[in-house]
Design a protein around this nucleic acid. Structure first.
Lengths: 246, 246
DNA sequence: ATAATAGTGTCTCTCAGACACTATGAG
DNA sequence: CTCATAGTGTCTGAGAGACACTATTAT
């Protein structure tokens, strides 16, 4: 089938961001309030149009910086940088009532941050527990997001849940130096299940390349001081962390 | 940041297909020969423009039918239908020299088929072992694909390799009824490693929901007749099949 | 002292991998 | 008969989960 490249149907291409963090033992997502129609006043995922000469990942990183000030480290070195990866692309014809928009969703895993300001505008951005936004178990969502963003968020959360099983990405939710207990609380918040602290400790310190001791100790959590670690170079965990089954 | 939806940069959106099958103990991908510039005469992944009122998955299924005659079963029932899922989206500004094209790649897993004809044109489509197209181990690719299709193919192959670990998708490479030995040869071809037939048999028949005995036996492969199975309903395998490590 | 968290040791059960052995066809 | 594939049994070692126990801080 020969096709004429000058006769393609025009699309708008956007990036949407599922930005996740762990705050007060809960997995939270970043939302911004929409200032225009459609869905004016409703909460939505941050995002925006891809520019004419811009890569998809660059557009996502730019939007992230504009909304949160976060920097990403694409390669290596996790220190302080958030993790960014492509999630999936949503292109249902009617997903935006104005026109044909294809959105390339990206997933960002970030350490806990002060409450964000969207474009300098406080009050128009907030962290919200994902459990309030998605029908977890029996509870229905308390509030609906704009467009198909609830679906995108659900896909992002599920990706994060499965990805921390076999990669060291859980460390992306932690500050540059962290304790085993802090890392465990990340797993517990993302998976929504309690984990045995003793087995978790043995497992995580025994997985090569996951954690690198950094020397100091801290007593942030009360109790006996805990060793500090930073993320090791390993990106794929062997053996993987296993999520307890239903 | 307020944005004016009428002032978006226009993009072309295409779907590209990584269609994989197992032929003669080798993982093969479907390629079509390009009839126009750029890359005229070179091999490329099948694909085409998304129509103005068409969903992304529908566009992928339509292109697949046009190129191969294959039908997909999106939900349930694997019988004879190929598996289709979204892979990733590629939008580097210079990936198509003519204009800004964003391609939403899809992955298709299909049972072995007669040599395909692209749009009725035999000789312009072929199955090629992925090992010849990607630099496996030390061997470099013998032939370069158009655009960034080598990268897309590599991502598709890696997705297939990891996906058959924890899902029952390997059965999508088999005919509706198949033996344990045939399924094992699929795993061996996709992973590129030999597996112990005895342990494989014990494991795969012991995983609930993976295989459903269908009653008959066959002697397709020579040797003692083997039981026939069809794919069970389970989509996620517990425990998973584990790929031997390096 | 108690409470809280960090970290180690030990037991049991399951499962992956190695491989001996039997079963049933084709030639 | 031999050869090839199907299918079962058995052993061993690694690891997950349960949980007793010790260590080190704050109050």
């Amino acid at each position: 089938m020969p096709y004429d490249p000058s006769e393609f149907p025009p699309f708008a291409v956007t990036v949407d961001l599922v930005v996740l963090t762990v705050r007060r033992h809960a997995l939270c997502a970043l939302l911004v309030r929409r200032g225009e129609d459609p869905y004016r006043g409703q909460w939505a995922l941050p995002g925006g149009f891809v520019r004419a000469d811009e890569d998809l990942a660059s557009a996502a990183a730019r939007e992230l910086a504009e909304e949160t000030g976060l920097r990403t480290q694409d390669a290596g070195s996790w220190h302080a940088g958030a993790h960014l990866e492509q999630l999936a692309t949503y292109g249902e014809p009617a997903r935006d009532p104005r026109m044909r928009v294809v959105s390339v969703a990206h997933l960002v895993l970030a350490p806990d941050l002060p409450t964000p300001t969207a474009g300098g505008d406080a009050g128009s951005a907030q962290w919200r527990p994902t459990s309030e936004l998605l029908g977890g178990a029996e509870g229905e969502p308390e509030e609906t997001l704009a467009f198909d963003h609830a679906r995108i968020l659900a896909d992002g959360v599920e990706r994060a849940r499965s990805k921390i099983e076999y990669s060291s990405l859980a460390a992306a939710f932690c500050p540059p130096e962290f304790t085993v207990g802090e890392l465990r609380r990340v797993y517990e918040a993302v998976w929504g299940v309690p984990l045995d602290p003793r087995n978790f400790h043995r497992k995580v310190t025994g997985t090569p390349g996951f954690l690198v001791p950094v020397g100091g100790t801290t007593t942030r959590q009360g109790g006996r001081p805990a060793q500090l670690f930073r993320a090791g170079g390993a990106s794929v965990l062997n053996p993987p962390m296993l999520r307890p089954e239903a």
